[in-house]
Amino acid sequence: MIACITISGCIVGTQGRPKNSPPPVTVPSVDLQRYGGTWYEIARYPNSFQKKCEGVTAHYEVRADGRVGVTNTCAHGTSSGKPRAVKGIASVIAGSNNAKLAVNFTPIPLPKGQGNYWVLYLDSAYQTALVGGPNGDYLWLLARTPKITPAQRTALNDAALQNGYRIDLLKDTIQP
């Protein structure tokens, strides 16, 4: 969900799921309090708004109004490059048990619809997560630590494949 960090426009060049495939399947529910905190980006589909971003993190915080505050940060060029951050607000899509969110980063409003941030995999300890856009334009592998084990990566990749996402399009994120 690392959206619009460079605010160069949210034009996407990746189509990671066939257009005629069924919608991806989200996790049954997400405890937003447990999901809150900092996540490290392990890999992503390349996109225009994260161009030259490394050392990427996302921080989520449940707000008093029930929405989720989002702060995405990246280092420009290398994992030790100049940091850049963007703030947004996520609203839960009704009936999704917190597994689908509509995330908006000003000044680029996004339509509410089905949401643009779907939690597709979340391990029981809330240590790794797979998040994607339902149309296949976006996919992120996230973890609570900057590095993950091969078994964790396999679980994330398997969840992506089961939902029809192409893992060959993933770009690994360099973390410090």
Rank of each mutant, 00 (worst) to 15 (best):
R144K: 12
N97W: 02
L110M: 13
N104C: 11
P134R: 07
A99F: 06
N97V: 04
G133E: 13
N163I: 08
S96L: 10
N104R: 14
G132T: 05
A125K: 13
D137P: 00
T128V: 15
A99I: 09
A155N: 09
R153Q: 14
D137C: 12
N135S: 13
T128M: 06
P134E: 07
A94F: 01
D158I: 05
L142Y: 05
T149K: 10
L122Q: 13
A125I: 00
T106S: 14
W118F: 10
Q162N: 14
L110F: 13
A94S: 15
G115Y: 07
D123P: 08
D123C: 08
Q152E: 14
A151T: 14
W118N: 00
Y117T: 11
D137Y: 02
A151W: 03
T149F: 05
Y126V: 10
I148H: 05
Q114P: 13
P111T: 08
R166F: 05
K100Y: 07
N97A: 15
V131D: 03
G113W: 11
P146F: 00
Y126A: 06
T128I: 15
L161W: 01
L101W: 13
F105S: 06
F105V: 15
D123V: 06
N116E: 07
I148C: 01
Y126E: 05
A129M: 06
P146I: 02
Y138M: 08
L101Q: 13
D168W: 02
N157F: 13
Q127G: 12
G113V: 08
Y165F: 15
L120Y: 06
Y138T: 11
L122V: 08
L101H: 12
N135T: 12
L110Q: 13
W118H: 14
G164C: 09
P150R: 09
Q152V: 04
R153E: 13
P109A: 12
A159C: 04
L139W: 03
D123R: 03
T154Q: 15
Y117Q: 07
G136A: 03
R144F: 05
K100H: 15
Y138D: 08
Q162H: 12
T145C: 02
G164T: 07
I148N: 05
P111K: 13
L142W: 03
R166D: 12
R153C: 01
P134Y: 11
L156D: 06
T149L: 07
I167A: 00
V119D: 05
P111V: 10
S124A: 14
Y165V: 07
A151K: 14
W140E: 04
V103L: 15
G164V: 04
N163K: 02
R144A: 06
G115I: 09
N97K: 14
L169F: 14
K147L: 06
